[in-house]
């Protein structure tokens, strides 16, 4: 009866052999192509360094003004603009200015990359059920696989630093924008699309004149979610050498500094709330034409 007692599994030796083969294979791969990949990502690294430097070296009043301006353009709400400015003043006053700027730089870069990659993928997905069928499980994996698991190959390939950190953030933050772009386009009213077809719109005219504008509220919800997810990766990214608010949090965890952890944690929360409110308001403003009743 031993068949039912012990699960029929590979022997320890075979299992070890299997793991070793995979490990060696990947190690060979990273030795072979690691440098090429690093060269490939070099422009990105330079951009990240430039952006971070820009934000840290710029005089703080200008940064606060720019942030207030963005908040105003997005939300058109005085409360949100004043709230954002006060948050940043408090962050600076409590000595977290530089870390916050680093975090802001990597979050902005990650968001831009996710939008740049995510929206086209979302459009592709919306155009074919087969592509949707292929991409959806990949997105599921990206969202649910523990971040530490994909940090291993990323670090093996690219070492420690900004680029692998950014990649880790992007892997986690990409799915919502892809999903919501796809969903937004698929939700566009069929009769409206028929109308575009009936007047002889070609594929591009249909996409950019009708589908994208009508999907915009959903796409913006995706951007909002992407930013939130990117912010939630800040601490994990700091484990592989990304500077910013995550590093003091890590120190606080390992040394039990309650106040340090709390302050930096709350700074991340403050950033999240500001981004969230601004992008949400922007999303709502974009669909104002649908809300106006006569």
């Amino acid at each position: 009866m031993s068949f039912f007692d012990d699960f029929p599994s590979l022997s320890r030796r075979d299992l070890m052999e299997l793991r070793r083969t995979i490990d060696n294979g990947f190690r060979d791969f990273s030795r072979e192509y690691g440098e090429a990949l690093e060269n490939f990502f070099n422009p990105l690294l330079q951009f990240l360094i430039w952006l971070e430097k820009l934000m840290i070296t710029a005089p703080w009043p200008i940064i606060i003004l720019v942030i207030a301006l963005f908040a105003w353009m997005g939300s058109r709400s005085k409360v949100i603009v004043i709230g954002s400015a006060l948050c940043f003043l408090a962050i600076g006053y409590l000595g977290m200015w530089k870390d916050t700027m680093s975090t802001l730089a990597i979050i902005s870069a990650a968001t831009l990359i996710c939008i740049g990659i995510g929206i086209p993928i979302g459009i592709l997905m919306s155009r074919s059920d087969r592509i949707q069928g292929i991409i959806t499980p990949i997105l599921d994996v990206m969202q649910t696989i523990p971040s530490f698991v994909y940090l291993i190959p990323v670090v093996m390939l690219l070492g420690i630093g900004k680029v692998p950190g950014l990649l880790a953030v992007c892997i986690y933050a990409l799915p919502p924008i892809v999903r919501l772009t796809n969903l937004g386009i698929r939700l566009v009213d069929r009769e409206v699309l028929e109308a575009a077809d009936a007047f002889g719109a070609n594929t591009l005219q249909r996409l950019f004149g009708v589908q994208m504008p009508l999907a915009l509220p959903n796409i913006f919800a995706g951007v909002n979610q992407t930013i939130m997810m990117a912010l939630s990766m800040v601490v994990i990214a700091s484990m592989i050498g990304v500077k910013g608010l995550g590093i003091p949090v890590l120190q606080a965890v390992s040394n039990q500094y309650l106040a340090l952890g709390l302050m930096n944690g709350l700074a991340i929360v403050a950033l999240a709330i500001i981004f969230d409110r601004v992008t949400q308001r922007l999303g709502k403003r974009l669909q104002k034409h649908q809300g106006l009743d006569h």
Binding site: E191, V192, E194, A195, A198, F199, G200, A201, L214
Partner: peptide, 21 residues
């Protein structure tokens, strides 16, 4: 077909099919 739809025939829909944006 696009040319036909653009110049020769146009259409009016039951639920109007207007572009809300």
């Amino acid at each position: 077909l696009r040319e036909l739809r653009r110049h020769k025939m146009s259409m009016v829909f039951q639920r109007f099919g207007l572009f809300p944006h």
